[in-house]
Amino acid sequence: MAVTTGNIVSWIAALASTYGEQQSYLTELDAAIGDADHGSNMARGFAAARDDLQGDPPETPAAALKRVAMVLMKTVGGASGPLYGTFFLKAATTCPQANELNGDQLLEALAAGTEGVQQRGKAEVGDKTMVDALVPAVEALRESRTAGEEPAAMLAAAATAAEAGRDSTYPLVARKGRASYLGERSRDHLDPGATSTALLLAAARDHLAA
């Protein structure tokens, strides 16, 4: 089972709903250790990306991912705009000609997106950022693929790993982003970026290989 362009469009539409529903929760997490805008930024950005894709359906996965990247960079703002934008943009560059993505291509796309996020934001695992959810998700994709799994099982493993990664941020002291200004006071809070990334992977599990 490969990932089609239509799967990507459904994934983004599902994310627009998810971030819309979770807007207050994400903003609450951000208010505790940041500046209380993550929920509204993600909801606004993914609603715009959904509208863009549905208004003029893209022909390939790469075209879809690139369009999402450009819309997110323009509409999200904050640190999340360039970071999530870079994630989708780098993912798009790995599969310019593909009409659908097999397991190897899916892994390659999400791994490239994750590397892009790390380069732009200069964060490592343990800094209490979205990277704490993304990196384990990509590791899970890779292990799962190596074990011979197809996209549906790969994404299920990635979503579980992202959720564990999100939970791992709770006791951490932030070293990147606005939460880092709080020092010790950033402990005992979930990172909003890792939380929105876990939601991104959960929606991928539910829609990207459906």
Binding site: M73, G77, A79, G81
Partner: peptide, 11 residues
Amino acid sequence: PGEVFTSPTPD
């Protein structure tokens, strides 16, 4: 100007 307390975007 970005949104309230949110940076402007690259475009």
